[in-house]
Design a protein around this nucleic acid. Structure first.
Lengths: 279, 279
DNA sequence: CTTGACCTTCAAGTAGCTTGAAATTTTAGA
DNA sequence: TCTAAAATTTCAAGCTACTTGAAGGTCAAG
């Protein structure tokens, strides 16, 4: 029989941890003196503790370990736990590998230019969204802004402000095209609803579900699309440096929508779906 | 200007997080209403927040980020932070990779045998230790036990019980030798001290520093060395399965030392230095 | 019997949030 | 203008796996 100090030295586990394990009922001493409260451990308990430590090494949580060593747990359940844990570890490995690349690229950037750059480019995931939209080929900027005004008017007529979310655009064409864009404009909706609004004889606004995106590179642009090339190139550069591959179509979310005559004050978040680049 | 709810939607950050960042002074709204306490954020703050999120993505702690974005931090210091972070990530990657192998091997074990095994084998690191010891070739068990008794007597004479730690042996020969072991017996010491104790004309006990070991596979054996083969083979099997390479010499720590006539009740922790196997 | 090592319990702190309660403010609709 | 709903506020507690410290009791050696 050992007192806690000696047992902790043998097992290489701090006494405070042994006390904690006792508190949570994971590993209790073989004997506790009623009067003094002193804990006494036996050598046989070493292997019990070792079993616990081995499971902890796998990264299992203490309450899981408790179930494993205290209760009778079926092999299927154990396999379930371990498979889950395996998936988690693989996930962690991926995330950390990406993180490492990011840190390395920052360090390199620091070597070359001595300061921070491209901090405004951020990776996000985008949920699926009901989207009240119209797809149309636009020839020039003015026509585009007119269309946006029309849609605003039509939406205000047919829907309460309540259900209307943010205004957004999906850029279906390749983004290096300079004119004749294939654009889809519309409003994010707060609820799904079935609705079609005719705008003209050939253009109809309808609801569809905008797909969710697992990973998207995003950046914020201040001002109209004429400032946009900077922003797009920032995204492209970032993606290349961090080894992501752009897999369009990109989106623009209007955070401050353009008002006629004040288009320069608009603010847009540009979002570009990506996947990790496999070489 | 946005209220917290809308800003949180734009930035894809929960409002609770924005409040928390405000609390800790990492990211405060551009304006807080004196009367109502309402927080108001501007679009320009989006990029400030994005900068913070980018740094968080690198895995930096919030107080580090705070320093980076609030204070003027020199590029050298930034480099220091990032290098440190890089090392940490690399460490994590290693640990998680090992963990993954361990979980996989458990799963495999489960497939083959349907239950848990070898839980009593544990990986530890061993600190350096002052060691009062004698190295000697032992021909058989009886001679060995006699030597141990002699050393106990000699130690009791020359040292207080206070400074004497656990009794231990280092196995210098290859561990598959069946006889004529090259053994080093001695006591762990609680302080370093300079001391030599003559035991006979050719045998002298002296203090030396027992090296620290980064990783050692350990197991507990109950009973004398005649039970030992089981234990050693458990360690060997474990190491092979988990892809570690044994890099002797092994050690035996006497947790319950052998008493003359009761050698079967002894308890020993076997420790074997290892390194990760490079194929 | 004293001294110092060892042990006890209890409380608080760690990081980065989340959840919930109770109170207030704003907004939409009638 | 009034009311109900939605949004926001602050404050407190909870999460994991411990660590640290205070105040006080226990044990062994000299």
């Amino acid at each position: 029989m050992f007192r806690i100090g000696e047992f902790s030295k043998i097992a290489q586990v701090p006494a405070s941890v042994l006390r904690y394990y006792d508190d949570i009922g994971l590993f209790t001493p073989i004997h506790s003196d009623r009067d003094t409260g002193y804990r006494y451990y036996s050598v046989e308990q070493l292997s019990q503790l070792n079993r616990i430590l081995a499971l902890k090494d796998l990264g299992l949580a203490l309450d899981q370990i408790k179930r494993l060593v205290m209760d009778e747990v079926s092999p299927e359940e154990i396999r379930g736990m371990l498979s889950l844990r395996k998936a988690q570890i693989e996930q962690t490995l991926q995330v950390e590998a990406i993180r490492l690349r990011a840190v390395e690229s920052r360090l390199q950037q620091l070597e070359h230019k001595g300061g921070f750059q491209d901090d405004d480019v951020v990776l996000k995931s985008l949920p699926a969204q009901p989207f009240l939209s119209l797809r149309h080929r636009c020839q020039d900027l003015k026509q585009t802004f007119t269309l946006i005004s029309q849609m605003n008017a039509a939406a205000a007529q047919h829907l309460t402000a309540k259900s209307l979310g943010r205004f957004a655009a999906v850029i279906h064409g390749e983004f290096y095209e300079d004119i004749d864009w294939d654009l889809e404009f519309g409003f994010y909706l707060n609820q799904t609803l079935d609705l079609t609004v005719p705008l003209s004889d050939r253009m109809v606004i309808r609801v569809r579900e905008l797909e969710s995106v697992e990973m998207a590179v995003t950046a914020v642009r201040f001002g109209g699309p004429e400032n946009g090339h900077l922003c797009y190139s920032a995204i492209g550069t970032w993606a290349e440096k961090h080894q992501y591959e752009l897999i369009g179509p990109g989106r623009e979310i209007f955070i401050v929508p353009p008002k006629p005559g004040h288009e320069a004050e608009m603010v847009v978040e540009i979002q570009f779906p990506v996947k990790t680049f496999m070489h």
